[in-house]
Write a protein that binds this DNA or RNA. Structure first.
Length: 552
DNA sequence: CTTGACTGCCC
DNA sequence: ATTCTGC
DNA sequence: GCAGAATGGGCAGTCAAG
């Protein structure tokens, strides 16, 4: 097999990492992409996107941090201690591989079967096929075969590609820009097509072969979901729109795109995985509906008129066996609130109010129902509906501009989400871990506890909410109060108090308090509070019980 | 046969 | 999921 | 306003090891 060498791609990535200029990144990568043939272009895009196959193929590599670490250890011949030290320093497995390989001796320096882009891509493809007994070793052997032929810089990018964390300041966005540059078309044209057909590689090849016009929404093939932006109050929403708007309940369920064409039905998740298999009774209900369509919906579970919490609902996903008992235990229903394709027509560009009208033509029944919505005009009406939603056990409300088209993949202000106000707890930091990537070497991930009589009980971890500056201040302070250094993590004297916000509390054996927080984030550092003043496990229990009352 | 580490994806 | 940062 | 980056908790499946 010959063709373009993988080292070329690795070196381009290195240059992209070194510059902060977007234009430079785009031209560097764009010029490289321009000269690839179809097969190599497709493979390169998939590698850079860490998307070996489109998600709806439901194939996974099943190689992660642990497997890669053992490979790096093996071929670099370094000790665990050394590996660990280098890893904490870089906060990136790829960088770790590069440094250790530079230091160590290559396992087999004489055999140099130079890696090509296609060889790498095809190997990863093959790895996702291995399963069953001995598959771990097969995957490892296939990877070893790549790594023994890789120079340190190639090894670095192999690791980065496999873990999906390139960390070179190039993600889907700039990749698209580079591709548009390479294809010589405006970025907006490319982007429009990618949102409709969310497979950058396939879009690129089709455009390259003059099939731009033919790319449109296709039945039984997922398109990106339209997303919402958060706002914090009914007033903010009312002021922003200042007109009649459509309001719906917001459900804490699983987003589902439902495709029906004749008797073929496919359902896709937000990440575009096909999830039809896990939802047989939903599929059955859909099959009894008339028409050909693509619908947007939320799947939830309601039992005895109560909404089941998300962690229960989640048990319906990724199941291998779905029996009668499970279907009764966690009964599903799909709440439909939008339509993208209806009886032979693309309708996603129509204004929402017309799409809502179209939905009325479908004879929803059984487990598929039309989502409730109503027109609201001011903050008082928004507020009222919001309260109603919470009382029913839902998550909040969605506010949508009736004049807006369905814009796949866009998170704009056409859809606004209003979630219930979060609770907060005052907690104390008891441990801290080093971050990754740009947070390498900084204690940026904090484990915190609440008070249980004279003891401290861990209730969660958080990393987001602080500015870089605050993190650096905490970093220095934490080092001063270290009790024990575990290498990747330090235990500290309980001195620093944080105000932590979260969406809900759940029972959990993850931490010793017996509780865990959902969506924890740091509100602020409470320099003014001493650890004696933090919240107690009783308060945690109280908040938990209050929420539980709404659920079944 | 059971357990625990690992992986990936739902929010 | 949330949040911050740089452009 | 967009794009990129870092990272939370819970779940099921898979595989290797005991």
């Amino acid at each position: 097999m010959n063709g373009r060498y993988f080292i070329e791609l690795a070196e381009i990535c290195e240059k992209i990492k070194e510059t902060t200029s977007k234009l430079e990144k785009i031209s560097k990568l764009g010029n490289f992409l321009k000269n690839l043939n179809d097969e190599e272009l497709s493979a390169t895009i998939r590698l850079l996107n860490s998307d070996i196959l489109p998600p709806w193929y439901n194939k996974e590599i099943q190689v992660g941090y642990s497997t890669l670490s053992s490979i790096i250890l093996e071929i670099s011949g370094s000790s665990k201690e050394e590996f660990f030290k280098v890893y904490v320093k870089h906060g990136d497995l790829g960088e770790t591989a590069e440094e250790l390989l530079k230091k160590g001796k290559a396992l087999n320096p004489l055999v140099q079967d130079k890696l090509t882009i296609l060889k790498v891509y095809k190997t990863l493809l093959k790895i996702s096929e291995y399963s069953g007994e001995g598959s771990y070793q097969s995957k490892k052997n296939a990877l070893l075969n790549l790594f023994v032929n890789a120079s340190p810089i190639e090894a670095k990018y192999l690791v980065k590609i496999i873990t999906g964390e390139l960390r070179i300041g190039l993600s889907e966005g700039l990749l698209e820009e580079s591709l548009a540059y390479a294809l010589g078309i405006p970025l907006t044209n490319l982007r429009e097509k990618v949102l409709i057909l969310p497979d950058l590689s396939e879009v690129a090849i089709r455009i390259k072969n003059g099939k731009y016009e033919e790319i449109d929404l296709e039945l039984l093939r997922p398109t990106s979901f339209m997303l919402a932006e958060p706002m914090s109050s009914p007033e903010e929403i009312a002021n922003y729109f200042n007109k009649e708007i459509i309001a719906e309940y917001k459900y804490d369920g699983i987003r589902a795109q439902i495709h029906k064409k004749d008797n073929k039905i496919r359902i896709f998740s937000r990440r575009l995985d096909e999830i039809s298999f896990y939802l047989p009774e939903v599929v059955e209900s859909i099959s009894s509906l008339k028409g050909v369509f693509i619908l947007d919906s939320e799947i939830i579970s309601i039992k005895n008129d109560k909404v089941l919490p998300f962690n229960i609902l989640q048990r319906r996903l990724r199941r291998k066996n779905i029996d009668k008992k499970l279907i009764e235990e966690i009964p599903l229903r799909a709440i439909v609130y939008d339509v993208l394709f209806y009886n032979g027509k693309q309708v996603y560009k129509l204004p929402l109010r017309e799409r809502k009208e179209l939905l009325k033509n479908i004879d929803f029944k059984d487990r598929i129902e039309l989502g409730f919505f109503k027109i609201v005009r001011n903050s008082a009406e928004i507020s009222k509906l919001f309260e109603e939603s919470l009382n029913k056990g839902f998550e909040g409300i969605m506010i949508k501009d009736p004049d807006s088209p369905y814009t796949p993949g866009k998170r704009g202000k056409a859809w606004i989400k209003l979630k219930k106000e979060f609770d907060t707890l005052d907690v104390v930091i008891v441990a801290a871990e080093y971050g990754h990537g740009k947070r390498a070497g900084i204690l940026s991930d904090y484990t915190f506890a609440v008070k249980d009589n004279n003891e401290l009980k861990v209730i969660g971890k958080a990393y987001s909410g602080l500015t870089d500056e605050e993190m650096e201040i905490l970093d220095r302070k934490l080092r001063d109060i270290t009790i024990e250094d575990l290498g990747y993590k330090i235990i500290v004297k309980p001195e620093i108090v944080l105000e932590v916000a979260f969406d809900s509390i759940q029972i959990s054996d993850r931490h010793d308090s017996g509780f865990a927080l959902r969506f924890p984030r740091i509100k602020r550092i409470r320099w003014d509070k001493s650890p004696h003043e933090i919240d107690t496990i009783e308060k945690v229990r109280e908040i938990y019980e209050r929420k539980k009352a709404i659920f079944a």
